[in-house]
Design a protein around this nucleic acid. Structure first.
Lengths: 194, 194
DNA sequence: GCTTGATGTTACCAATGGCAACACGAGTAA
DNA sequence: TTACTCGTGTTGCCATTGGTAACATCAAGC
Protein backbone atom coordinates (compact mmCIF):
# COMPACT_ATOMS: atom_id res chain seq x y z
CA UNK A 1 0.00 0.00 0.00
CA UNK A 2 1.21 3.45 -0.78
CA UNK A 3 1.70 5.68 2.23
CA UNK A 4 0.21 8.55 0.24
CA UNK A 5 -3.21 7.03 0.65
CA UNK A 6 -5.67 7.69 3.40
CA UNK A 7 -4.55 4.56 5.16
CA UNK A 8 -1.09 4.24 6.48
CA UNK A 9 -0.51 0.67 5.46
CA UNK A 10 1.45 -0.72 8.35
CA UNK A 11 0.73 1.50 11.27
CA UNK A 12 0.93 -1.16 13.93
CA UNK A 13 4.51 -2.16 13.27
CA UNK A 14 5.46 1.44 12.56
CA UNK A 15 4.12 2.42 15.96
CA UNK A 16 6.13 -0.24 17.74
CA UNK A 17 9.26 0.81 15.90
CA UNK A 18 8.66 4.49 16.59
CA UNK A 19 8.00 3.73 20.24
CA UNK A 20 11.29 1.87 20.51
CA UNK A 21 13.04 4.83 18.97
CA UNK A 22 11.49 7.39 21.24
CA UNK A 23 12.08 5.11 24.19
CA UNK A 24 15.76 4.87 23.37
CA UNK A 25 16.18 8.55 22.69
CA UNK A 26 14.05 10.21 25.31
CA UNK A 27 13.26 7.62 27.94
CA UNK A 28 10.02 6.12 28.99
CA UNK A 29 8.89 9.20 30.91
CA UNK A 30 8.51 11.36 27.83
CA UNK A 31 7.16 8.66 25.60
CA UNK A 32 3.72 9.82 24.54
CA UNK A 33 1.28 8.65 21.96
CA UNK A 34 0.69 12.03 20.40
CA UNK A 35 4.34 12.51 19.52
CA UNK A 36 4.50 9.01 18.09
CA UNK A 37 1.45 9.60 15.94
CA UNK A 38 2.76 12.97 14.80
CA UNK A 39 6.01 11.34 13.68
CA UNK A 40 4.06 8.90 11.58
CA UNK A 41 1.88 11.62 10.04
CA UNK A 42 -1.17 10.30 11.74
CA UNK A 43 -3.52 11.70 14.35
CA UNK A 44 -3.25 10.24 17.79
CA UNK A 45 -6.57 8.42 18.08
CA UNK A 46 -5.46 6.26 15.16
CA UNK A 47 -3.26 4.45 17.65
CA UNK A 48 -6.33 3.02 19.32
CA UNK A 49 -7.28 1.12 16.20
CA UNK A 50 -4.24 -1.07 16.80
CA UNK A 51 -3.69 -1.00 20.55
CA UNK A 52 -6.22 -1.02 23.34
CA UNK A 53 -4.28 1.64 25.20
CA UNK A 54 -0.81 2.96 25.83
CA UNK A 55 0.13 -0.01 27.98
CA UNK A 56 -0.75 -2.42 25.20
CA UNK A 57 1.70 -0.67 22.89
CA UNK A 58 4.38 -0.78 25.54
CA UNK A 59 3.75 -4.46 26.03
CA UNK A 60 4.35 -5.05 22.35
CA UNK A 61 7.61 -3.15 22.62
CA UNK A 62 8.62 -5.14 25.68
CA UNK A 63 7.86 -8.34 23.86
CA UNK A 64 10.28 -7.43 21.10
CA UNK A 65 12.81 -6.77 23.81
CA UNK A 66 12.42 -10.22 25.29
CA UNK A 67 12.78 -11.79 21.88
CA UNK A 68 16.01 -9.95 21.25
CA UNK A 69 17.33 -10.73 24.71
CA UNK A 70 16.57 -14.39 24.17
CA UNK A 71 18.45 -14.37 20.89
CA UNK A 72 21.51 -12.84 22.47
CA UNK A 73 21.50 -15.24 25.40
CA UNK A 74 21.00 -18.15 23.07
CA UNK A 75 23.91 -17.13 20.90
CA UNK A 76 26.11 -16.74 23.95
CA UNK A 77 25.11 -20.04 25.48
CA UNK A 78 25.98 -22.10 22.44
CA UNK A 79 29.31 -20.33 21.96
CA UNK A 80 31.22 -22.54 24.36
CA UNK A 81 29.11 -25.60 25.07
CA UNK A 82 31.84 -27.41 26.97
CA UNK A 83 33.37 -24.83 29.26
CA UNK A 84 30.57 -23.92 31.65
CA UNK A 85 32.44 -21.15 33.38
CA UNK A 86 33.22 -19.46 30.10
CA UNK A 87 29.64 -20.02 28.98
CA UNK A 88 28.40 -18.14 32.02
CA UNK A 89 30.74 -15.28 31.29
CA UNK A 90 29.53 -15.10 27.72
CA UNK A 91 25.94 -15.01 28.86
CA UNK A 92 26.65 -12.34 31.42
CA UNK A 93 28.39 -10.28 28.78
CA UNK A 94 25.45 -10.77 26.46
CA UNK A 95 22.95 -9.72 29.11
CA UNK A 96 24.90 -6.63 30.04
CA UNK A 97 25.52 -5.86 26.40
CA UNK A 98 21.78 -5.84 25.87
CA UNK A 99 21.38 -3.54 28.85
CA UNK A 100 23.99 -1.16 27.47
CA UNK A 101 22.46 -1.14 24.00
CA UNK A 102 18.87 -0.79 25.18
CA UNK A 103 18.83 0.55 28.73
CA UNK A 104 15.38 2.04 28.63
CA UNK A 105 13.97 -1.01 26.96
CA UNK A 106 15.26 -3.29 29.70
CA UNK A 107 13.69 -1.05 32.32
CA UNK A 108 10.43 -1.16 30.46
CA UNK A 109 10.56 -4.94 30.26
CA UNK A 110 11.06 -5.49 33.94
CA UNK A 111 10.01 -2.50 35.93
CA UNK A 112 7.40 -0.52 34.15
CA UNK A 113 5.06 -3.43 34.04
CA UNK A 114 4.00 -5.31 37.13
CA UNK A 115 4.55 -9.00 36.59
CA UNK A 116 0.84 -9.57 37.09
CA UNK A 117 0.13 -7.44 34.06
CA UNK A 118 2.83 -9.14 32.05
CA UNK A 119 1.29 -12.52 32.71
CA UNK A 120 -2.07 -11.41 31.40
CA UNK A 121 -0.55 -10.78 28.00
CA UNK A 122 -0.07 -14.25 26.67
CA UNK A 123 2.53 -13.66 24.00
CA UNK A 124 4.52 -11.28 26.20
CA UNK A 125 4.55 -13.84 28.96
CA UNK A 126 5.68 -16.53 26.54
CA UNK A 127 8.50 -14.32 25.29
CA UNK A 128 9.75 -13.66 28.81
CA UNK A 129 9.58 -17.36 29.59
CA UNK A 130 11.80 -18.14 26.63
CA UNK A 131 14.52 -15.86 27.85
CA UNK A 132 14.39 -17.54 31.22
CA UNK A 133 14.49 -20.96 29.60
CA UNK A 134 17.90 -20.26 28.12
CA UNK A 135 19.29 -19.53 31.53
CA UNK A 136 17.58 -22.51 33.03
CA UNK A 137 19.15 -24.87 30.54
CA UNK A 138 22.55 -23.40 31.26
CA UNK A 139 22.45 -24.70 34.82
CA UNK A 140 20.61 -27.92 34.08
CA UNK A 141 23.71 -30.02 34.59
CA UNK A 142 24.30 -28.74 38.13
CA UNK A 143 23.85 -30.86 41.24
CA UNK A 144 21.62 -28.40 43.03
CA UNK A 145 17.99 -27.71 42.23
CA UNK A 146 18.12 -26.00 38.83
CA UNK A 147 15.34 -23.62 39.81
CA UNK A 148 17.35 -22.38 42.73
CA UNK A 149 20.58 -22.20 40.78
CA UNK A 150 18.96 -20.42 37.88
CA UNK A 151 17.48 -17.89 40.26
CA UNK A 152 20.93 -17.07 41.53
CA UNK A 153 22.37 -16.81 38.04
CA UNK A 154 19.49 -14.77 36.75
CA UNK A 155 19.64 -12.46 39.76
CA UNK A 156 23.33 -11.84 39.36
CA UNK A 157 23.04 -11.13 35.65
CA UNK A 158 20.02 -8.96 36.12
CA UNK A 159 21.61 -7.11 38.99
CA UNK A 160 24.73 -6.38 36.99
CA UNK A 161 22.63 -5.18 34.11
CA UNK A 162 20.43 -2.87 36.14
CA UNK A 163 23.32 -1.45 38.10
CA UNK A 164 25.11 -0.82 34.85
CA UNK A 165 22.13 1.06 33.51
CA UNK A 166 21.74 3.04 36.69
CA UNK A 167 25.44 3.84 36.63
CA UNK A 168 25.18 3.03 40.29
CA UNK A 169 28.72 1.72 40.39
CA UNK A 170 31.49 3.77 38.87
CA UNK A 171 33.34 0.53 38.29
CA UNK A 172 30.83 -0.44 35.68
CA UNK A 173 31.30 2.79 33.78
CA UNK A 174 34.79 1.89 32.65
CA UNK A 175 34.44 -0.84 30.00
CA UNK A 176 37.69 -2.39 31.10
CA UNK A 177 36.69 -2.74 34.73
CA UNK A 178 33.21 -3.76 33.71
CA UNK A 179 34.59 -6.79 31.98
CA UNK A 180 36.58 -7.60 35.10
CA UNK A 181 33.43 -7.46 37.17
CA UNK A 182 31.67 -9.73 34.71
CA UNK A 183 34.57 -12.15 34.78
CA UNK A 184 34.60 -12.13 38.53
CA UNK A 185 30.86 -12.72 38.63
CA UNK A 186 31.14 -15.68 36.27
CA UNK A 187 34.08 -16.98 38.26
CA UNK A 188 32.14 -16.77 41.50
CA UNK A 189 29.17 -18.55 39.97
CA UNK A 190 31.30 -21.27 38.46
CA UNK A 191 33.26 -21.91 41.63
CA UNK A 192 30.20 -21.78 43.78
CA UNK A 193 28.02 -24.06 41.74
CA UNK A 194 29.95 -26.50 39.62
CA UNK B 1 0.63 25.14 65.38
CA UNK B 2 -2.96 24.06 65.28
CA UNK B 3 -4.00 22.50 62.02
CA UNK B 4 -7.20 24.50 62.18
CA UNK B 5 -5.28 27.58 61.20
CA UNK B 6 -4.69 28.85 57.74
CA UNK B 7 -1.24 27.30 57.75
CA UNK B 8 -0.78 23.60 57.94
CA UNK B 9 2.18 23.54 60.28
CA UNK B 10 4.29 20.72 58.96
CA UNK B 11 3.26 20.24 55.40
CA UNK B 12 6.66 19.22 54.08
CA UNK B 13 7.06 16.14 56.24
CA UNK B 14 3.37 15.36 55.94
CA UNK B 15 3.74 15.36 52.16
CA UNK B 16 6.65 12.96 52.24
CA UNK B 17 4.77 10.62 54.56
CA UNK B 18 1.63 10.79 52.46
CA UNK B 19 3.64 10.16 49.31
CA UNK B 20 5.19 7.06 50.86
CA UNK B 21 1.75 5.84 51.76
CA UNK B 22 0.26 6.38 48.36
CA UNK B 23 3.36 4.87 46.80
CA UNK B 24 2.99 1.73 48.86
CA UNK B 25 -0.72 1.42 48.31
CA UNK B 26 -1.21 2.41 44.71
CA UNK B 27 2.17 2.34 43.05
CA UNK B 28 4.21 5.07 41.53
CA UNK B 29 2.08 5.32 38.41
CA UNK B 30 -0.95 6.67 40.19
CA UNK B 31 0.93 8.84 42.63
CA UNK B 32 -0.24 12.37 41.96
CA UNK B 33 0.17 15.63 43.78
CA UNK B 34 -3.46 16.57 43.75
CA UNK B 35 -4.53 13.45 45.60
CA UNK B 36 -1.75 13.96 48.13
CA UNK B 37 -2.77 17.54 48.74
CA UNK B 38 -6.42 16.56 49.01
CA UNK B 39 -5.57 14.00 51.66
CA UNK B 40 -3.84 16.68 53.70
CA UNK B 41 -6.73 19.12 53.33
CA UNK B 42 -4.65 21.45 51.24
CA UNK B 43 -4.87 22.65 47.67
CA UNK B 44 -2.36 21.23 45.27
CA UNK B 45 -0.27 24.31 44.50
CA UNK B 46 0.67 24.42 48.19
CA UNK B 47 3.04 21.58 47.42
CA UNK B 48 5.21 23.92 45.41
CA UNK B 49 6.01 26.01 48.50
CA UNK B 50 8.00 23.02 49.77
CA UNK B 51 9.16 21.19 46.67
CA UNK B 52 10.35 22.55 43.38
CA UNK B 53 8.32 19.98 41.50
CA UNK B 54 7.00 16.46 41.69
CA UNK B 55 10.43 14.95 41.18
CA UNK B 56 11.81 16.86 44.14
CA UNK B 57 9.19 15.30 46.38
CA UNK B 58 9.96 11.85 45.02
CA UNK B 59 13.64 12.43 45.66
CA UNK B 60 12.89 13.18 49.29
CA UNK B 61 10.93 9.95 49.51
CA UNK B 62 13.75 8.02 47.87
CA UNK B 63 16.20 9.49 50.32
CA UNK B 64 14.20 8.16 53.24
CA UNK B 65 14.28 4.82 51.49
CA UNK B 66 18.06 4.80 51.28
CA UNK B 67 18.33 5.73 54.93
CA UNK B 68 16.13 2.83 55.93
CA UNK B 69 17.92 0.42 53.63
CA UNK B 70 21.24 1.48 55.11
CA UNK B 71 19.95 0.86 58.63
CA UNK B 72 18.79 -2.62 57.74
CA UNK B 73 22.03 -3.53 56.01
CA UNK B 74 24.03 -2.13 58.89
CA UNK B 75 22.08 -4.14 61.43
CA UNK B 76 22.56 -7.28 59.37
CA UNK B 77 26.27 -6.76 58.84
CA UNK B 78 27.09 -6.42 62.51
CA UNK B 79 24.99 -9.42 63.45
CA UNK B 80 27.73 -11.97 62.76
CA UNK B 81 31.02 -10.11 62.49
CA UNK B 82 33.12 -13.28 62.39
CA UNK B 83 31.33 -15.61 60.03
CA UNK B 84 31.53 -13.87 56.67
CA UNK B 85 29.37 -16.33 54.84
CA UNK B 86 26.60 -15.99 57.38
CA UNK B 87 27.05 -12.22 57.32
CA UNK B 88 26.43 -12.19 53.60
CA UNK B 89 23.31 -14.25 54.04
CA UNK B 90 22.01 -11.87 56.66
CA UNK B 91 22.63 -8.91 54.43
CA UNK B 92 20.94 -10.58 51.50
CA UNK B 93 17.97 -11.38 53.68
CA UNK B 94 17.88 -7.79 54.88
CA UNK B 95 18.02 -6.42 51.35
CA UNK B 96 15.26 -8.70 50.13
CA UNK B 97 13.27 -8.02 53.26
CA UNK B 98 13.38 -4.36 52.43
CA UNK B 99 12.28 -5.13 48.89
CA UNK B 100 9.35 -7.18 50.15
CA UNK B 101 8.28 -4.54 52.65
CA UNK B 102 8.65 -1.60 50.28
CA UNK B 103 8.61 -2.86 46.72
CA UNK B 104 7.46 0.35 45.10
CA UNK B 105 9.88 2.38 47.15
CA UNK B 106 12.83 0.32 45.98
CA UNK B 107 11.77 0.77 42.39
CA UNK B 108 11.51 4.47 42.94
CA UNK B 109 14.96 4.59 44.46
CA UNK B 110 16.69 2.85 41.60
CA UNK B 111 14.66 3.03 38.48
CA UNK B 112 12.41 5.99 38.45
CA UNK B 113 15.29 8.37 38.76
CA UNK B 114 18.19 8.34 36.33
CA UNK B 115 21.43 8.17 38.28
CA UNK B 116 22.44 11.50 36.78
CA UNK B 117 19.47 13.11 38.43
CA UNK B 118 20.16 11.36 41.71
CA UNK B 119 23.67 12.72 41.80
CA UNK B 120 22.48 16.27 41.40
CA UNK B 121 20.60 16.02 44.66
CA UNK B 122 23.37 16.17 47.20
CA UNK B 123 21.67 14.65 50.21
CA UNK B 124 20.04 11.94 48.15
CA UNK B 125 23.37 11.04 46.63
CA UNK B 126 24.96 10.94 50.07
CA UNK B 127 22.23 8.65 51.35
CA UNK B 128 22.70 6.22 48.49
CA UNK B 129 26.46 6.25 49.03
CA UNK B 130 26.00 5.24 52.64
CA UNK B 131 24.04 2.16 51.70
CA UNK B 132 26.76 1.18 49.30
CA UNK B 133 29.42 1.81 51.94
CA UNK B 134 27.97 -0.90 54.16
CA UNK B 135 28.33 -3.41 51.39
CA UNK B 136 31.78 -2.22 50.53
CA UNK B 137 33.01 -2.72 54.06
CA UNK B 138 31.59 -6.21 54.09
CA UNK B 139 34.03 -7.32 51.39
CA UNK B 140 36.95 -5.19 52.54
CA UNK B 141 38.82 -8.19 53.88
CA UNK B 142 38.78 -10.04 50.55
CA UNK B 143 41.84 -10.61 48.43
CA UNK B 144 40.35 -9.25 45.25
CA UNK B 145 39.75 -5.62 44.48
CA UNK B 146 36.98 -4.60 46.88
CA UNK B 147 35.33 -2.45 44.24
CA UNK B 148 34.99 -5.41 41.95
CA UNK B 149 33.88 -7.74 44.70
CA UNK B 150 31.37 -5.31 46.05
CA UNK B 151 29.95 -4.86 42.58
CA UNK B 152 29.31 -8.57 42.37
CA UNK B 153 27.76 -8.70 45.81
CA UNK B 154 25.63 -5.64 45.25
CA UNK B 155 24.51 -6.93 41.88
CA UNK B 156 23.47 -10.28 43.27
CA UNK B 157 21.55 -8.73 46.15
CA UNK B 158 19.94 -6.16 43.96
CA UNK B 159 19.07 -8.74 41.35
CA UNK B 160 17.43 -10.99 43.91
CA UNK B 161 15.50 -8.05 45.29
CA UNK B 162 14.22 -6.80 41.96
CA UNK B 163 13.31 -10.25 40.75
CA UNK B 164 11.46 -10.83 43.98
CA UNK B 165 9.50 -7.65 43.47
CA UNK B 166 8.75 -8.48 39.88
CA UNK B 167 7.68 -11.96 40.91
CA UNK B 168 9.71 -12.95 37.92
CA UNK B 169 10.66 -16.25 39.47
CA UNK B 170 7.99 -18.39 41.02
CA UNK B 171 10.69 -19.79 43.28
CA UNK B 172 10.92 -16.48 45.04
CA UNK B 173 7.21 -16.40 45.74
CA UNK B 174 7.37 -19.25 48.23
CA UNK B 175 9.06 -17.88 51.37
CA UNK B 176 10.61 -21.24 52.06
CA UNK B 177 12.26 -21.56 48.68
CA UNK B 178 13.15 -17.90 48.73
CA UNK B 179 15.28 -18.46 51.79
CA UNK B 180 16.94 -21.37 50.01
CA UNK B 181 17.79 -19.15 47.09
CA UNK B 182 19.21 -16.56 49.43
CA UNK B 183 21.25 -19.19 51.21
CA UNK B 184 22.52 -20.54 47.92
CA UNK B 185 23.42 -17.04 46.77
CA UNK B 186 25.36 -16.35 49.96
CA UNK B 187 27.00 -19.74 49.67
CA UNK B 188 28.09 -19.07 46.12
CA UNK B 189 29.49 -15.69 47.07
CA UNK B 190 31.33 -17.03 50.07
CA UNK B 191 32.83 -19.96 48.19
CA UNK B 192 33.71 -17.83 45.22
CA UNK B 193 35.34 -14.98 47.05
CA UNK B 194 36.73 -15.96 50.42
C1' DG C 1 -22.46 0.67 -8.39
C1' DC C 2 -23.55 -0.43 -3.58
C1' DT C 3 -22.55 -2.12 0.75
C1' DT C 4 -19.52 -3.28 4.41
C1' DG C 5 -15.69 -3.34 7.44
C1' DA C 6 -11.31 -1.70 8.58
C1' DT C 7 -8.76 2.33 9.42
C1' DG C 8 -8.16 7.42 10.21
C1' DT C 9 -9.98 12.10 11.50
C1' DT C 10 -12.40 15.65 14.02
C1' DA C 11 -14.06 17.21 18.16
C1' DC C 12 -14.36 16.60 22.52
C1' DC C 13 -13.46 15.40 27.84
C1' DA C 14 -11.07 14.64 32.38
C1' DA C 15 -6.91 14.33 34.87
C1' DT C 16 -2.62 16.14 35.88
C1' DG C 17 1.67 19.12 36.57
C1' DG C 18 2.71 23.64 36.87
C1' DC C 19 2.49 28.98 37.03
C1' DA C 20 0.87 33.74 38.42
C1' DA C 21 -1.54 36.69 41.16
C1' DC C 22 -3.76 37.24 45.28
C1' DA C 23 -4.97 36.31 50.42
C1' DC C 24 -4.03 35.30 54.95
C1' DG C 25 -1.69 35.55 59.34
C1' DA C 26 2.18 35.50 62.58
C1' DG C 27 6.03 38.10 64.07
C1' DT C 28 8.43 42.48 64.40
C1' DA C 29 9.22 47.35 64.86
C1' DA C 30 7.38 51.98 65.38
C1' DT D 1 -1.99 49.64 68.80
C1' DT D 2 -0.70 50.01 64.01
C1' DA D 3 1.72 48.93 59.99
C1' DC D 4 5.05 46.32 57.43
C1' DT D 5 6.77 42.03 55.83
C1' DC D 6 7.52 37.41 54.70
C1' DG D 7 6.30 32.65 54.71
C1' DT D 8 2.62 29.82 53.39
C1' DG D 9 -1.80 28.63 51.29
C1' DT D 10 -5.65 29.73 47.71
C1' DT D 11 -7.96 30.88 43.45
C1' DG D 12 -7.86 30.83 38.71
C1' DC D 13 -5.70 29.65 34.96
C1' DC D 14 -2.98 27.02 31.13
C1' DA D 15 -0.72 23.18 28.30
C1' DT D 16 -0.07 18.41 27.86
C1' DT D 17 -1.71 13.94 27.73
C1' DG D 18 -4.55 9.56 27.59
C1' DG D 19 -8.86 8.29 26.10
C1' DT D 20 -13.81 8.22 23.86
C1' DA D 21 -17.50 8.98 20.36
C1' DA D 22 -19.15 10.19 16.06
C1' DC D 23 -18.04 10.82 11.51
C1' DA D 24 -15.15 10.20 7.07
C1' DT D 25 -12.63 7.61 3.74
C1' DC D 26 -10.88 3.88 1.24
C1' DA D 27 -10.61 -1.10 -0.41
C1' DA D 28 -12.81 -5.28 -1.38
C1' DG D 29 -16.66 -8.31 -2.39
C1' DC D 30 -21.35 -8.77 -4.00
Amino acid sequence: MANTSYHHGNLKQALIAAAREQLAEQGVASLNLRALARGLKVTHPAVYRHFKDKDALLEAVAEEGFVELTERLQAASVASPEDHARGLEHMATAYIGFALDHPELLQLMFVLMPASERMQNESLYAASKQAYAVLLSSVAHTDTDPYISSAVVWALFHGLATLTIDKQLEVLGDPDKRQKVIAQAAHVLARGMF
